[in-house]
Amino acid sequence: MAYSDKVVDHYEHPRNVGSLPKDDPNVGTGLVGAPECGDVMRLQMKINPETQVIEEAKFKTFGCGSAIASSSLATEWVKGKTVSEALAISNTDIVRELSLPPVKIHCSVLAEDAIKAAIEDWKKKKEVSAPAANATAGN
């Protein structure tokens, strides 16, 4: 099975490889994995708390070409988007853009999960840093 040109391009020139400071309150980290193939993917984004815009995104993935391409593409796509726009990205968008074959669909699912996990992590941090506001809202 041959990879599509886009997968090869992302694999050979991955965008936004690296890391962001994990303890920064504005950074959300999503670490996900696919046990069947042993892939592990970390996606991080720096989110502006005022505007909810994703200002920076980095990833590091250990896995096959499709997993690397999916996460590389995901960082490109989320940059400049708001949190709610990023949450709307679906794995099928990634499948279409990269022309992933059926056996590699789980790689795109992983990338979608990573986006969601990173945003989830960021939201959790916000709750912790603003407990007073939360307590009022909760009661």
Binding site: L31, G33, E36, V40, F62, P102, I105, H106, V109
Partner: peptide, 22 residues
């Protein structure tokens, strides 16, 4: 099943796996 159905690994293990890969 592979694909849509999620096979989740525990987070502590993911951390370990990630670090070792690094």
């Amino acid at each position: 099943k592979e694909g849509q159905k999620k096979q989740q690994a525990p987070p502590e293990l993911l951390e370990e796996v990630f670090e070792l890969n690094e």
